[in-house]
Design a protein around this nucleic acid. Structure first.
Lengths: 200, 200
DNA sequence: GTTGGGTTTAACCAAGTGGTTAATTTTGCA
DNA sequence: TGCAAAATTAACCACTTGGTTAAACCCAAC
């Protein structure tokens, strides 16, 4: 409802909130308009139709997410350091926008063709990961493990608590603050968990 | 479209498929009717409205999932064995119904009050897990780690490949068969990964 | 001030939605 | 065979939905 910063941008921000909350199918154009504090017709004036508005939101969210996560890896020159910083960055980023991974994954499952555009955003980061991995492997510092599987495990340990958050919090009787504390603790414990497992 | 086994049951099965594919918000009653091969009015004859039909599907899916997963744990009397069998059972179950976790989690995020009913289904299993954990801890066979966090990690490593499947398969250029092989491989590698990490 | 183009709105529309109803068919059984 | 109850359907309805339109508004340049 904030009136600053131009209608077009305000619409996109409102749409981001609504789409992330309700998903593409559950979101209503009227709700986006209300949240942006403008007339519904203005949505179509700037973004044609629901699909294009959604794509604007999705593309922006996905790109920001991926670049942010992978960039930090490129700054590292050691696998263990890379894992530590990757996990910490991922968790910090998720604390800022906890509903984002669930949103991205949910929409990606519903319509996987969104991937084509933005997935290459982390190409350089992934190549660098491969390099760090091989280096550590050659130096005999890690056990024999499929690098792709290790990557899956890292992502899983980072993302899953956010994706399964309601189940988790209910299971362990956590409130929002307790969840936050748990995530902050995981900034240390998750890298430990991973590195203990792969260290030769 | 199979005509056997009574309309009521056929409707529920069709609804399960449609809801899991499209989610509550995206599913259409007409689509359920078509998939069940019956008239749309019959849905309301047996299940009143969309919400109740959805709850029938959700409750059934969630209960089956949880009981199936936790039961196997109760049959074990050692933590490491428990982890191995839990992971294997979880992955086998997911291979049968790969879209289920994404569905459950997605709807749970949209409306967390579904939890209240079925989450206690795994109560006995979780209590047994706690016992196995403490036993292994007292015998000095595992390091000092929060048992709840270990549980989160186990679930994460099992569920995440399925939840993030489209991202994963696209990232690594996998087809369905390659994905399946990867999961079957993980029946061994995931328990190894976990146990290596927690063994004292 | 007038004018003209970009912006914003209220009113409207057609299609699709979940849900109802009343009539028809099928079934169980005396 | 007849008949009442259950099952099934076609037709319908009120309402929501995404999307359009034409008019109003704003504001800088002339």
């Amino acid at each position: 409802m904030v009136k600053e910063q131009g209608a077009e941008h305000r619409i996109l921000e409102a749409a981001r909130r609504v789409f992330i909350r309700k998903g593409m199918a559950g979101a209503r154009m009227q709700e986006v308009a209300d949240e942006a504090g403008i007339n519904k017709a203005l949505l179509h004036y700037y973004y044609r139709d629901k699909q294009r508005l959604f794509e604007g939101v999705f593309k922006g969210s996905a790109e920001r997410q991926f670049t942010c996560i992978w960039r930090v890896l490129e700054e590292c020159d050691d696998l263990f350091e890379g894992i530590e910083r990757f996990v910490a960055t991922y968790l910090d980023r998720m604390l800022e926008e906890p509903l984002l991974p669930q949103f991205l994954i949910s929409e990606l499952n519903r319509d996987p063709k969104h991937l084509l555009e933005f997935i290459d955003r982390g190409k350089a980061g992934r190549a660098h990961y491969q390099k760090l991995f091989e280096q550590a492997r050659e130096e005999g510092r890690i056990i024999d493990i499929d690098p792709r599987e290790l990557l899956v495990n890292i992502m899983a340990l980072c993302a899953h608590p956010f994706i399964a958050r309601p189940m988790l919090t209910h299971l362990h009787g956590m409130n929002d603050e307790a969840f936050r504390r748990m995530i902050l603790k995981r900034r240390r414990t998750v890298p430990d968990f991973i590195i203990r497992s792969i260290r030769a």
